[in-house]
């Protein structure tokens, strides 16, 4: 214990200065344990790794732009810069949502598909994004979620909504097929079938839980 004769208060712990007026304190025996544990301020524990990665990728992209410029600008360096931007966007989602893997997967698949369509558009529309990327992405996320829920032994309320969302995404290729945008129909048909089968399986095995989850998530 200490004593501050300016404030006239007893101070717990061994404070050299008064917490109220910051003047010197006098000793006064008794318990010397500080009233609160000292918690060090940690600034971005993993900061260095990401900073180095950021410098390397951004530095590389700038170097490519420079080389491209020196050789009479053919535009290939813009793809490098775009690739770096996509990498950081996807990395950001995985880190920001690291505590909820299924939510991260759901957001990733949306972003990956949007970026894929954008790349396809920018490189002279050959429809590879909607022909192959979308069906492959939706089906692989469905498979990944299925495995994750089994391995991590997740309770149904932790994964149902994300699984349902991904099945809903899986029906998107049907709309694209109907609009006549696809050049190779087989992957899209496969994706739609897999989504519908997965949905039926979910209803058969977890029908009650699905109804309850939707009631909770959609309550007004």
């Amino acid at each position: 214990m200490r004593y501050c004769d300016k404030c006239g208060v007893t101070i717990a712990g061994e404070e050299a200065r008064c917490p109220l007026c910051q003047s010197m304190t006098l000793p006064r025996g008794g318990d010397s344990r500080p009233p609160f544990p000292d918690v060090p301020t940690l600034y971005a524990r993993h900061g260095l790794f990401f900073r180095i990665l950021l410098l390397c990728t951004v530095g590389g992209a700038i170097a490519c732009l420079g080389v491209d410029w020196a050789l009479g600008f053919h535009g290939w360096s813009l793809f490098v810069a775009g690739g770096v931007a996509c990498l950081w966007l996807l990395l950001y989602i995985s880190i920001a949502r690291r505590r909820n893997v299924l939510k991260a997967l759901t957001q990733q698949v949306v972003v990956v598909c949007a970026l894929g369509v954008l790349w396809d558009l920018c490189t002279g529309w050959r429809a590879w994004s909607i022909d192959y990327l979308l069906p492959a992405a939706f089906m692989s996320v469905m498979l990944a979620m299925f495995i994750l829920t089994l391995v991590l032994r997740m309770p149904s309320e932790a994964f149902l909504i994300y699984l349902l969302l991904d099945m809903l995404f899986g029906l998107l290729p049907a709309a694209l097929l109907a609009a006549g945008l696809c050049r190779n129909a087989y992957p899209s048909i496969a994706c739609v079938c897999v989504s519908v089968i997965a949905f039926v399986a979910l209803l058969v095995f977890k029908g009650g839980a699905v109804a309850q989850e939707l009631k909770r998530r959609l309550h007004l």
Binding site: V9, T10, I11, A12, G13, C18, P19, L20, F36, T41
Partner: peptide
């Protein structure tokens, strides 16, 4: 303390 009350202070250190 000006009212003649004995006050004991327990404070933390927000800045480590």
């Amino acid at each position: 303390t000006a009212m003649d009350l004995d006050v004991t202070i327990y404070a933390n250190h927000p800045e480590s």
